[in-house]
């Protein structure tokens, strides 16, 4: 067991957990933020995506203790951290079907727009390729990303 410090959505947390706990399970079981989802556990589906210092990161394979002072933003904190336009665009396009993967999709889109405020279609596809939507909402996800860009994108 280890004492691990995390900074999540601007707030500091100290958790007692297994030394090797991935960020995903630290967030879900210890910090109490369950918006970040488990999908595969091997960084293949993107459901667990969070921002670590602004970079879209698969939390299911990211050791929590490696993060130190890094700024972690989860879906619960995205609106207050520059990503509200994406969430609004997701609503405008009524993008989700089952909704389970969408937190990861939105966070990946936020990571993309933080590094590239006006991506091409190919750049959107490349950045989003790690996020699976089993319901097949890809057309709407792309449309929502474009709407968010039109409405000012995300704060870097």
């Amino acid at each position: 067991m280890a004492s691990i410090s995390l900074k999540v959505n601007g707030k500091p947390f100290r958790i007692e957990a297994e030394d090797d706990i991935p960020l995903l399970w630290a967030l879900r079981d210890h910090v109490g933020l369950v918006g970040t989802k488990y999908g595969c556990g091997i960084a293949q589906c993107g459901s667990c995506t969070v921002l670590v210092d602004g970079v879209a990161t698969r939390s299911c394979v990211m050791p929590a203790k490696s993060l130190g002072e890094a700024e972690i933003i989860t879906i619960e904190g995205l609106a207050e951290n520059g990503g509200k336009s994406l969430q609004e665009a997701w609503v405008e396009h009524d993008t989700p079907q089952c909704g389970y993967c969408q937190a990861g999709q939105i966070i990946s889109a936020a990571g993309l727009l933080k590094s590239n405020s006006n991506p091409t279609d190919e750049e959107i596809d490349a950045a989003m390729k790690g996020n699976i939507c089993r319901c097949g909402s890809y057309v709407r996800i792309k449309a929502a990303i474009k709407t968010a860009i039109m409405k000012g994108g995300v704060e870097a």
Binding site: V34, G35, I75, E76, A79, Q87, D94, G99, Q102
Partner: peptide
């Protein structure tokens, strides 16, 4: 979708 707002802000909705 009546749950769309809760989905996009990551509210607990699912069994998990």
């Amino acid at each position: 979708n009546v749950d769309v707002y809760d989905i996009v802000v990551g509210k607990p909705l699912f069994g998990m």
